[in-house]
Amino acid sequence: MFEGGDLERASFDRNHLLKHGAEPAMIYSEIVQCMTFHEMLEKEDFDTVDLLQIDAEGYDYEIIKTIDFNRLAPSILRFEYRPLSNSDLDECLIMLGRHEYRFIVEDLDPIASR
């Protein structure tokens, strides 16, 4: 995490923070408990999800890839595409399209709806 004045950012990648102006001395690492999307749903006893908003500072597609859309498919999925490589974005949109999602793009975030 990087703390700078009123600005705090978190990322899985130190270089992502440096790219956005963080001073190396202001970055600290922290080990956090992680779980998959489906583990979180089971823990919280969710059977359905209407809206899933992902903002994982460039790791959005990594999270989307872990979702079993045959088991549980959010009606609306919103994520940030700008940090993704063109090939990752293409793969992501193709995968979501195969699961019958259609897309609206607003500013930096596509909205996928079923």
Score class of each variant (00 low, 15 high):
residue 76 I to E: 06
residue 114 R to W: 13
residue 22 A to Q: 02
residue 9 R to N: 10
residue 83 P to E: 05
residue 75 S to M: 12
residue 60 D to M: 01
residue 103 F to R: 00
residue 88 D to V: 05
residue 46 F to L: 14
residue 52 L to F: 03
residue 44 E to F: 08
residue 35 M to T: 12
residue 103 F to V: 08
residue 36 T to H: 01
residue 110 P to F: 03
residue 112 A to S: 09
residue 95 M to C: 08
residue 91 E to L: 09
residue 60 D to I: 04
residue 76 I to R: 08
residue 56 A to S: 09
residue 10 A to S: 13
residue 84 L to Q: 07
residue 75 S to H: 10
residue 12 F to A: 12
residue 37 F to Y: 07
residue 22 A to D: 01
residue 87 S to K: 12
residue 100 E to G: 04
residue 65 K to L: 04
residue 107 D to T: 10
residue 90 D to L: 09
residue 26 M to E: 15
residue 72 L to R: 06
residue 14 R to H: 14
residue 15 N to L: 10
residue 57 E to W: 00
residue 108 L to T: 13
residue 68 D to V: 03
residue 83 P to Q: 04
residue 52 L to M: 05
residue 75 S to W: 04
residue 26 M to D: 15
residue 113 S to H: 14
residue 93 L to N: 00
residue 96 L to Q: 05
residue 70 N to W: 08
residue 22 A to S: 04
residue 112 A to R: 07
residue 48 T to A: 12
residue 52 L to P: 05
residue 52 L to G: 00
residue 4 G to M: 12
residue 58 G to F: 03
residue 88 D to Q: 14
residue 17 L to A: 01
residue 73 A to R: 15
residue 88 D to A: 11
residue 45 D to L: 13
residue 87 S to P: 02
residue 87 S to N: 13
residue 45 D to V: 14
residue 78 R to T: 15
residue 94 I to T: 13
residue 21 G to R: 06
residue 12 F to Q: 08
residue 15 N to T: 13
residue 71 R to M: 12
residue 86 N to M: 11
residue 60 D to N: 03
residue 105 V to D: 08
residue 78 R to C: 13
residue 76 I to D: 03
residue 102 R to E: 14
residue 32 V to P: 02
residue 58 G to C: 00
residue 94 I to K: 13
residue 65 K to S: 03
residue 77 L to T: 08
residue 23 E to I: 02
residue 111 I to V: 15
residue 58 G to L: 02
residue 100 E to D: 13
residue 112 A to Y: 06
residue 32 V to A: 14
residue 48 T to M: 08
residue 6 D to E: 12
residue 67 I to P: 06
residue 73 A to L: 06
residue 48 T to F: 14
residue 18 L to F: 06
residue 104 I to C: 09
residue 102 R to S: 14
residue 89 L to D: 08
residue 1 M to V: 12
residue 38 H to M: 10
residue 46 F to T: 02
residue 85 S to K: 09
residue 8 E to G: 06
residue 40 M to E: 09
residue 94 I to N: 12
residue 63 I to G: 00
residue 41 L to V: 04
residue 70 N to P: 02
residue 94 I to C: 08
residue 87 S to I: 12
residue 53 Q to H: 10
residue 79 F to L: 04
residue 16 H to N: 11
residue 5 G to A: 03
residue 17 L to G: 01
residue 64 I to L: 06
residue 65 K to M: 05
residue 71 R to N: 10
residue 61 Y to P: 00
residue 96 L to R: 05
residue 49 V to M: 04
residue 54 I to R: 01
residue 5 G to Q: 03
residue 35 M to F: 05
residue 93 L to W: 02
residue 23 E to R: 12
residue 80 E to W: 03
residue 18 L to V: 04
residue 42 E to T: 11
residue 45 D to H: 13
residue 57 E to K: 04
residue 95 M to F: 11
residue 53 Q to P: 03
residue 98 R to F: 10
residue 87 S to G: 05
residue 20 H to N: 12
residue 31 I to A: 14
residue 32 V to G: 07
residue 107 D to Q: 08
residue 92 C to L: 06
